[in-house]
Design a binder for these strands. Structure first.
Length: 433
RNA sequence: GUGGGCGUAGCUCAGGUGGUAGAGCUCCUGGUUGUGGUCCAGGCGGUCGUGGGUUCGAGUCCCAUCGCUCACCCCA
């Protein structure tokens, strides 16, 4: 993966980015197609927002106190002095678009899905990049628990059909903002009484966001948290009801999950339901997809009060998990099913053949056939080898005398009187006629 | 940002105790195979990450630096 020449160094892809080469391209595209199929069936419309937005959107949307905003944003100024940032996630952007385009006037809920690149300035690691792709879905405009369940079911289906293998689904509820804030106070007070046992990081964050203590792997912190009050026990009755309804629907759908009171998502906007799918096929970055409800976000961004749910899944992580241990095939579902039409290869035995060959190539394309022509000056032997590699069923060989069509299976050749007949013969061999 | 591992041809890697670069694969050519998927031969391809130092001489030793990678952290 690493280039090595110093000359090339300056021209390497930036740290934390990667090139998608043809080999990786197929499963990647297949994942997108799979997502499209799943979402369209469920009534989700494809939407896109810009790859960069006003930096303020993320500060207000994602949360000033989050790591994402505090230290991971690619922020910059444009020539007009506007403060912009590459989007670190999509929810804030969709909410902005929802407000900007008055989507609250549409039939609710508005269901959207997306796929695209996101940017976070983090130290790269297995499954973690500075530019990465996410597939995600959001449903805005209803607090119905069936939306929470629906989105989780859709994500479960996507992961399953992508072939990521066994996943774990953790589920919890954060309640609404006020209960969460009250709980944060309570937790902070509790943790203060055991401050000596906590890790330095957790102590430093105590004021900013005590809930984050639950993410810590520090032994002392974990021990102190065992006896800590649980947010789930502090939910308002209607939040608890909502959570129970979501669980009921998941039970009915036979989606296995575990309720994990320690599940705290790192974005400030979450309310009520939160969830995360993890896979042990990944390294330390075990999360393949996750999300939750963000009932206050649209309003916070200047829109009408609008409950909403959504999730995002990491494309690279799904691909990584779907790859399996052996590194290549794995469950092998992504893109393996696509049947490809046979190719017709146009071989040139003389330089003068280029014009005739190119004309035949265009005719084949217009006829809807897959066709390629020799363009590297190879010997005929090399051309046939190339035709083989390209998956050719027929080869049209053009020379000074005329042209003939070779059947790559029987190795038999037929003379063609003119280009029209050559095309006909070739199409006949590939079954395209 | 911090720590561990690693940086030799496009890819995967060899290169005890320093002596001035190799293999396999890929690609191309020729031969063979009925002009292709086998086999044989040949060829293209490397400022040994970079800079400095020690030395008559460094891919091999020392220092620095950059990059990759894994982990912490955080998250998709």
């Amino acid at each position: 993966m690493a280039a090595s020449r110093s000359q090339a160094r300056a021209l390497e892809a930036p740290r934390g980015t990667f090139d998608v080469l043809p080999g990786d391209g197929r499963p990647r595209r297949a994942l997108g197609h799979l997502a499209e199929e799943i979402f369209e069936r469920a009534g989700y419309g494809y939407a896109e927002t810009p790859a960069f937005e006003s930096a303020d959107l993320f500060a207000r949307g994602v949360g000033e106190a989050t790591d994402i905003v505090q230290k991971e944003m690619f922020a910059f100024e444009d020539q007009g002095g506007r403060a912009l940032a590459l989007r670190p996630e999509n929810t804030a952007g969709f909410c902005r678009a929802y407000v900007e385009h008055g989507m609250h006037k549409r039939p609710q809920p508005v269901k959207l899905w997306y796929e695209g690149p996101f940017f976070r300035h983090e130290a790269p690691q297995a499954g973690r990049f500075r530019q990465f792709a996410q597939i995600g879905a959001e449903a805005l405009g209803s607090d119905d628990p069936s939306l929470d369940a629906e989105l989780i079911v859709l994500l479960a289906e996507l992961l399953d059909r992508a072939g990521v293998g066994e996943v774990r689904l953790r589920l919890s509820s954060l309640g609404t903002a006020p209960t969460r804030h009250a709980y944060a106070e309570e937790l902070r007070d509790y943790l203060r009484t055991r401050e000596g046992e906590l890790s330095e990081e957790v102590r430093a964050r105590l004021d900013l966001n005590p809930l984050r203590a639950f993410d810590s792997s520090h032994p002392g912190t974990r021990a102190a948290l065992v006896e800590a009050p649980k947010l789930l026990d502090r939910l308002e009755p209607e939040d608890a009801e909502h959570f129970a309804a979501v669980r009921e629907l998941l039970d009915d759908a036979r989606v296995p999950y575990e309720v994990d009171p320690a599940l705290v998502r790192g974005l400030d906007y979450y309310t009520r339901t939160v969830f995360e799918f993890t896979s042990d096929r990944l390294g330390a970055q075990s999360g393949v997809g996750g999300g939750g409800r963000y009932d206050g976000l649209v309003e916070q961004l200047g829109g009408p009060p609008t409950p909403a749910v959504g999730w995002a899944a990491g494309v690279e992580r799904i691909l990584l998990a779907a790859q399996g241990e052996d590194g290549s095939s794995g469950d092998g579902r992504l893109g393996d099913g696509v049947r490809r039409e046979p190719v017709i290869f146009v071989a040139l035995e003389s330089e003068a053949g280029t014009r005739a060959g190119f004309s035949i190539l265009r005719t084949l394309w217009r006829a809807g056939a897959r066709a390629e022509m020799e363009q590297a000056g190879r010997s005929l032997k090399g051309q046939l080898k190339q035709a083989s590699r390209a998956g050719a069923r027929a080869v049209v060989i053009v020379d000074d005398a005329g042209m003939r069509v070779r059947d790559m299976r029987s190795r038999e050749e037929q003379l063609a009187a003119d280009p029209g007949q050559a095309v006909e013969l070739a199409l006949g061999l590939t079954g395209a006629l």
